[in-house]
Amino acid sequence: MENNIKIKVKGLKKSFGSLHVLKGIDAEITTGEVICVIGPSGSGKSTFLRCLNRLEEATEGEILVDGESITGKNSDIDKIRRHIGMVFQQFNLFPHYTVKENIMLAPVQLKIKTKEEAEKKAMELLQRVGLADKADAKPKELSGGQQQRVAIARALAMEPDIMLFDEPTSALDPEMVCEVLDVMKELAAEGMTMVVVTHEMGFAHDVADRVFFIDQGVIMEQGTPEEVMDHPQNERTQSFLSKVL
């Protein structure tokens, strides 16, 4: 069992100046698990996610990925990030490159693939997210939903074994939410280890193996979607769910 633990978070704290955003988080995520992180805005759920690939430096505590510390001073974060994909709320595609170039950039720059291999892989990924016909378009020519699917393809191009999603559908028009969630569902079904910060309660309920309810900088409640979302024990979870469901 211990060998199956992909991400281990021990006593994670994060402060911005005098603002304590994370007040001690402990969590274990096993290989292939899909975790949905829910909670009110400002609760620290995005900060928690961003600590997992060190976009935010932990103030205290430790994070282990595959048993290796990523919070230590000596850890090579650039190398670790190669197998942790990240998808942002605002997509963050590179506007000066085409869709295909966005996807090819990292594997080619990091000399993991030749240009030809990277291009082949990019086309496969675009096929998979249903955007092969947009390979040569610039990001700004795409809709929000399409951009987010490209962003997922870009992260997958590094062949990560963990994918982090930071409110991937929050910036999308309602009719585009589905196309992005469908791609994510497929990924989950293929056994990708995923941590998803989301407000999509339906998605969390259907796809998550476990749900973390974060509020006031701690995991208030965690368990299967049935446990946390259908039969919440914590008063704050109940109050939150009654407002969003």
Partner: peptide, 25 residues
Amino acid sequence: NKGQMEAARSLGLNYAKSMQKIILP
């Protein structure tokens, strides 16, 4: 946009490469 650097770093590019390929252009 700050997200550009974050996206580049998240892919595993180091600071210099991110600057050169993403931010400076």
